[in-house]
């Protein structure tokens, strides 16, 4: 319970920044997403499972927040509700509720929506927010541009600006700084360990560096890859989900490296410009195996 509260607190900077820049529509998505996730969990525990209600553990709130932050700010409310049904109803409660699911609920929902409503899910129009940014790139994300037109098209993007504010993309991907602030909070509170996140960053950076050095015209560089798309949101908040990540430190490193490889392969060679969700989902399947292989160092059994 206190762990989930910490996660909610850690997400707040990114949530506030996204609301500031995307305005009322983003607030609506957040509200609908959290409300429908919580309501669904309550309804399912009450009427389908007939078990004590588990809404109080705040995990549904976290799922709702993460789902909302994975959607474009123009998503219609009913798509958000479908996402919530997918996340809570299918990905979480069918497996037995909190702690039992194999796949991260928010990611499952996002991938489902991405495949079912591709047009809505890639509509990166920038709506009116409370704070205007003149440099706003609308219509397509930087990754989208890079995917279509090659690395040169995004070569002169100001990376510092991208680090602070990266308008265009899912709501939660807006500010790397806000996300990292939340991640550091989780580390300080000892909610999560840094190994998974660091190994994802490291793998992405290394692969991007190698490819970029081989052919800078075709492949984007490490800094660009780290700061764009869902890498930071995914690595800090989605891949580190307790339930769907390995328990041991070394298992976490292998899991992170796997995510890094898959996401870079999708970015460079796949038909989608972004692959963080797919990468996490694929590596989620490997977690039970990793848990079997990597064990704690036991006393007196070295």
């Amino acid at each position: 319970m206190s762990l989930m509260r910490d996660v909610v607190i850690a997400l707040m900077p990114a949530v506030i920044v996204s609301v500031l820049f995307y305005g009322w529509s983003e607030l609506l998505i957040l509200a609908v997403s959290v409300a429908s996730c919580v309501l669904l969990e309550w309804a399912i525990t009450k009427w389908l499972l007939k078990k004590p209600c588990t809404v109080g553990d705040l995990s549904a709130v976290v799922t709702g927040l993460l789902l909302a932050m994975n959607l474009p700010s123009t998503t219609p409310w009913w798509v958000v509700v479908i996402g919530a049904v997918m996340a809570i109803g299918v990905a979480k409660m069918t497996f037995g509720g909190l702690g039992q699911n194999i796949f991260n609920p928010a990611i499952t929902a996002r991938v489902f929506l991405l495949i079912s409503f591709p047009a809505i899910m890639t509509d990166w129009t920038v709506p009116q927010g409370f704070i205007q940014n003149v440099d706003a790139v609308s219509g397509a994300t930087l990754l989208g541009i890079a995917g279509e037109k090659g690395a040169l098209a995004v070569a002169d993007v100001d990376m510092l600006n991208t680090f602070l504010l990266n308008i265009g993309g899912s709501a939660g991907e807006i500010s790397a700084l806000a996300l990292l602030a939340g991640w550091v909070y989780l580390l300080v509170r000892k909610v999560i360990k840094p190994w998974i996140t660091l190994s994802i960053f490291g793998t992405v950076a290394v692969i991007a560096a190698i490819f970029h050095l081989c052919n800078p015209e075709m492949f984007t560089g490490p800094v660009f890859n780290l700061l764009t798309g869902g890498i930071i949101l995914g690595a800090c908040f989605m891949a580190t989900d307790y339930v769907t990540s390995p328990m041991s430190n070394w298992g976490g490193v292998v899991y992170g490296v796997g995510i890094g490889i898959v996401v870079m392969m999708i970015r460079y060679f796949g038909s989608y410009p972004e692959g963080m969700s797919f990468a996490i989902l694929i590596m989620n399947c490997v977690v039970p195996l990793l848990n079997r292989w990597f064990h704690q160092r036991k006393y007196g059994r070295a």
């Binding site: 319970m1 588990t54 509720g97 909190l98 702690g99 307790y242 328990m247 704690q296 036991k298 006393y299």
Partner: peptide, 21 residues
């Protein structure tokens, strides 16, 4: 008691390096 969320805190705390969960 609530569900185990596999946070691994018990495994980190165990002085014998066991995995209580």
């Amino acid at each position: 008691e609530s569900n185990c969320i596999r946070c691994g805190k018990c495994a980190d705390a165990c002085p014998m390096g066991l995995e209580p969960f």
